[in-house]
Write a protein that binds this DNA or RNA. Structure first.
Lengths: 158, 158
DNA sequence: ATTAATCCTAGCTAATAAGTAGGAATTGAA
DNA sequence: TTCAATTCCTACTTATTAGCTAGGATTAAT
């Protein structure tokens, strides 16, 4: 029950992109180096985000990526679903109209799975990227002022 | 981001056990055959549930398993955590007091992961097994009366 | 032309999930 | 006292997935 690096790195990358793409397109290489993600791997994540219609690409020298929608209209759910395919921990035949499994008549766990799925979807769909970018900028401001660089040396996995 | 068969089968098994262990201990073999789970695999799941203090075992002929606590005091969260170890989709160093990673100063995704984790935990902790067993019994009653055995033939994976 | 970029597909490696398997220990009943 | 039914413990196996790496084609600005 872990979110894969696709979702974890990808969300970070997209927030990074949102912050730096206001003036010009951002190449993969610069996101990758800021975020400490393999360029080659990030390429694939960007391809998924593009396919999902969240970002646009500009090929050739001077190119890179920009957002394809307004930042306030992209939810964390959009991003994670683009990258993970399906973020629901349990897929159950009984969820789809007209379908069901041999047990679904007497099955109670399906109610449990449904509630879990719903709560996750609701949570990720109500966080929009603009909130995160705003938050991120304000954190960076604070850090500059207070010069409090008490950084832990543990590597970030997320 | 999938719940493993440990959690899925295990919860079904425990609900089954709760329903059938009122008069006498239930052996693994009978749970396994009712639920269509490999006996040998279920053995291991039961061991985990026992270690977590949710069930008790009675060895030897005529033995089996019974609940170790009142059914109303066992939450779905207890069961899933016993089987999956940790049901939070993202583990982040910044969640633990006094810890953090190199990025946690300027990290915003941690807020996202925290919200997802919280919503899952809250959801599974507020469903108690007695609700599910009650529900299950009532479904079985209904099925008996209405004789509506329109069973889909798809196998259940959960 | 050269260089900086995206695009596309394939392959590789390590970890994890999902079970199988063998046999020891315990207990009730014939 | 033997047998059968059960849990217990540990190791092994197999299939799938995650997490990359790699090669080279294509596009466009200078």
């Amino acid at each position: 029950m872990k979110l894969s690096t696709k979702g974890r790195y990808g969300l970070r990358a997209l927030i990074d992109l949102a912050q730096y793409s206001e003036v010009e397109p951002v190449p993969i290489s610069s996101i990758a180096s800021r975020q400490g993600i393999s360029e080659r791997y990030l390429e694939q994540l960007m391809a998924m985000l593009k396919k999902a219609g969240l970002i646009q690409s500009i090929r050739g020298a001077g190119g890179g990526y920009i957002l394809a929608k307004e930042i306030k209209d992209i939810s964390v759910g959009d991003v994670l679903r683009a990258l993970e395919g399906n973020i629901e921990p349990v897929e159950c035949a009984a969820f789809h109209e007209g379908e069901g499994c041999e047990a679904s008549g007497g099955c109670v766990t399906k109610y449990v799975w449904q509630k879990i799925n719903d709560s996750i979807n609701q949570t990720v769909d109500e966080i929009m990227l603009d909130q995160l970018v705003k938050e991120s900028k304000s954190i960076m401001e604070d850090n500059k002022k207070s010069n409090s660089n008490i950084m832990a040396h543990k590597k970030c996995n997320n």
